[in-house]
Design a protein around this nucleic acid. Sequence first.
DNA 1: CGGGACACGTGAGCC
DNA 2: TGGCTCACGTGTCCC
Lengths: 221, 221
Amino acid sequence: MQHLQSYYNSEAKMIRGGFPRPFISRTYQTSFLKQRSKTEIKVVAAKKHSEAEKRRRMRINGQYETLRTILPNLIKHGEIDFVMNHQKDKASVLAETIKQVKELKKKVSEVEQDRCGSSSKDVVKFPSGADRLRLEKCNNEEDLVKATLSCEDSLGLMSAISRAMGSVKTKVVKAEIVSVGGRNRSVFWVQGLGNDRMGMLKSSLKIAMHKPAFKMRRSTH
Amino acid sequence: MQHLQSYYNSEAKMIRGGFPRPFISRTYQTSFLKQRSKTEIKVVAAKKHSEAEKRRRMRINGQYETLRTILPNLIKHGEIDFVMNHQKDKASVLAETIKQVKELKKKVSEVEQDRCGSSSKDVVKFPSGADRLRLEKCNNEEDLVKATLSCEDSLGLMSAISRAMGSVKTKVVKAEIVSVGGRNRSVFWVQGLGNDRMGMLKSSLKIAMHKPAFKMRRSTH
DNA sequence: CGGGACACGTGAGCC
DNA sequence: TGGCTCACGTGTCCC
């Protein structure tokens, strides 16, 4: 490329400026220039081409670079910049990326299925102002029902809910309880509940939410 | 490359087999062969080189391919394979990859900080057989303490814990309770607790865990 | 030296 | 037609 470019520059200059223009016939000049123009065009096209290609390469390599920075696997710059960065080759970077993406995806899906299908958007959910009750089957876990409820918080609430759970002979394997501002939002993961008893549990919970069936009385032990 | 290879094959054959060997002087033959060997070596080296380079390219492009498959952003193969796959160019694939990786990382860290630093390995933790109590500050959230306890499950346990929480004028913003096999593991995220009162809460909880300060008595309302 | 990794310029194909 | 991408073979540098 070097020689082409210099060739292009020097030769073109000589032709354009070096010849005594008045002594060249018009037709000869034009044909000559046309001749030159053709190769000039070719050369300049090649130059453009190679430059565009260089830009493309730089774009891609820039992406590799940022990829290297966000992946926790390569040797970073030392404190001293004299020490050359011993970085992994492109194929390895891509391989590592693939690995990481797969791992991250697995992680995310694990957590999401752990939350029984809730998206990561509503990870932290505060009690709703309105009373709510929802039962849903967990699609990725057999025989697991997620009961979500929002209601007024009260002293006997948990006991009432526990009683409601017990009334349908079910087992709460996990609970998530948020109480804030006098409101309560609870999520219960329930096992051992057939399709038929989902309605029963729902009505029991509805009752428990609104008028706890019993009150607690404290007595010093 | 094609012409180089055929050149190498045919010429070599002609030289080796085509000449009437007995009539060539030994020195001439060897020097001639040597001469040939040099270009031969060069040619075969070039071939090896280009082949290695091809292998390298294929390795990299293979990675691009798998990257394309695991990223949910590109037009996939249609049912009909005649329709050519209109796929994004390399730079875009890398850019999309970077975007995805960043998003996934954010998602994961969000969830993990929501769980207050617990790794995704111990997302579902069952109660420990031994009694345990641990208080730790959440590093990514100011004024948030995570209290984790494992102990014998009992009817008054939650009330006792609630009392312990109230005794240090703190607020539980979130709770995670797992009760299984007569054992209980609870995690409480607590706000409004100074450094000085962490010890107080710890001892209060310790007491609540082992001998609840009061018992519940049920009475029909 | 040989093998690996990269950048380069160029030919080819595709809108 | 030109602008873009890709594959290719090669030059070069580094173990």
